[in-house]
Design a protein around this nucleic acid. Sequence first.
DNA 1: TATCCTTACGGAATTCGTAAGCATG
DNA 2: CATGCTTACGAATTCCGTAAGGATA
Lengths: 307, 307
Amino acid sequence: MNFQQLRIIREAVRQDFNLTEVANALFTSQPGVSKHIRDLEEEIGVELFIRKGKRLLGLTPPGKELVPVVERILRDTQNLKTIADQFASNEHGNLTIATTHTQARYALPEVIKQFKQRYPKVHLTLHQGGPTEIAEMLVQGIADVGIATEVLHVSPALAAFPSYSWHHAVIVPHDHPLNAVQDLTLEAIAAYPIITYNEGYTGRAQIDRAFAQADLHPDFVLSAIDADVIKTYVEVGLGIGVIASMAFNPAKDTGLKLLNADHLFEKNTTYIAVHRGTFLREYAHQFALMLAPEIDESALRAAAESV
Amino acid sequence: MNFQQLRIIREAVRQDFNLTEVANALFTSQPGVSKHIRDLEEEIGVELFIRKGKRLLGLTPPGKELVPVVERILRDTQNLKTIADQFASNEHGNLTIATTHTQARYALPEVIKQFKQRYPKVHLTLHQGGPTEIAEMLVQGIADVGIATEVLHVSPALAAFPSYSWHHAVIVPHDHPLNAVQDLTLEAIAAYPIITYNEGYTGRAQIDRAFAQADLHPDFVLSAIDADVIKTYVEVGLGIGVIASMAFNPAKDTGLKLLNADHLFEKNTTYIAVHRGTFLREYAHQFALMLAPEIDESALRAAAESV
DNA sequence: TATCCTTACGGAATTCGTAAGCATG
DNA sequence: CATGCTTACGAATTCCGTAAGGATA
């Protein structure tokens, strides 16, 4: 048994059992991949993959049990290197953050500025994606921490901690009739075409839920991933916008007005997530604490260390 | 990085940093061991061992952090093989039990007979030793389950479950004056030379505690690891014996009489222990359940699977 | 001076990549 | 017939053991 064999097993699952792709992903030859798999199967005495003719289709029952152990071994080898790097220097290294546009654009800049002041030599990488992609990046070990409002609880392999809370707000052009309304209601909003986030992004589920509970069916005329796009279309008069309030900048968004809607939509909570069993560098840990100061530090360590 | 390097690191700790012994233990050459260590240290970029001249003296701080991860990786590779064997056959395999003389001689025979009936093809190995040796055998993965009355809680890496409880009793020759006594007291016992278990064995601590609390200082004229030895010396009149009551067999120990002492000594509990993070074969699991039927099955699985 | 580690080097074993062949959707 | 896996074989690399040398209790 060797590590290359284990990497191949893990990659085979990730590449949907296409060994040619596995070979590409691991920068090796395809026949070598085949041989490694057969060697390992022979060594441990069970077939890991279901085969139909020459193709691999999936995992056998033993394969299903063994793959998580393989993944843990490989994660631990990664941890070995990470811990060693930690001792080599607390100040340099890489930190990869997977997050959504909204967080990257409006919530993170302040924290990242602060982080860079403390750790100027740490190289930061920001990966952007939807919630499921963020979760996947954590699971695959591509990203160290993930930040999103939506379901980062999906996989039990992830540990999520609340970072901060915020509300949606309504944005309208300056000359819009809603500007005159005193107490904003869902009914009043639902009377106009609405531009807001895509499903699965930035608390969209909360927005839908609020209207559904009020038995309202507004016209979602356009949806987008980010507030900048939404604001643009509100400005051109396509409808009113519902965005995260922090995405409104009075200094820059001069053509628009922000209407408070805290009482209309449920509070949203943005979470910071890490992958259980993956060692966190000291600075990654500090980054998490900067973003969520009230996080239970020992819980974070525990999440990162146990499986 | 390869598994041999990791095995060498683990073995270096076990062999107290004597690389010659490491080479012997792993059936390889000593220069190879040295090279593997230096290669690994170079690869991860930190020194794992404190060196004085050419000798290794201990672990550096990074070494102390990394060794547990190395151990977990190696344990998981063992788990891979164990799980694979499990699928190859539920009925064959090996089960290694580490236990004390007392358990092996008096408590286990019935359970083992029952186990062999259910799993006739499983090869059983009984390793005998003191409590610390039993714990060590579990930690090193030499034994699958450990059974003892004494401290198996020492290492947090072990999970111990109560199996059954028992009391000490007094044994005397037939013509002994204590035979006539109605209500046995500690004072009455302490008046005679006592033969009982060695320190650290079969609840000896309970016996000492009982006398200490009564402020009695009996003459422990002889101590031994097993009841057979104790009985022999009681028969020749060297003193009275204090043994586990289950070690008395009225049919065979015809020259002796058993005096109940449940009210004099605290109850003892025999524990069954496994090493956390080590996968238990189905039959090993069943063995544990036979020995401790009221064990929480999910707790046992959890102990065996998490770290 | 005996123990223990390192360096050096040659051979053994493993791993890897290329080329060719075969099965399947 | 293109995709995907296997077999076969030679090259490259890694691993291992022996022999010799040096440091330390």
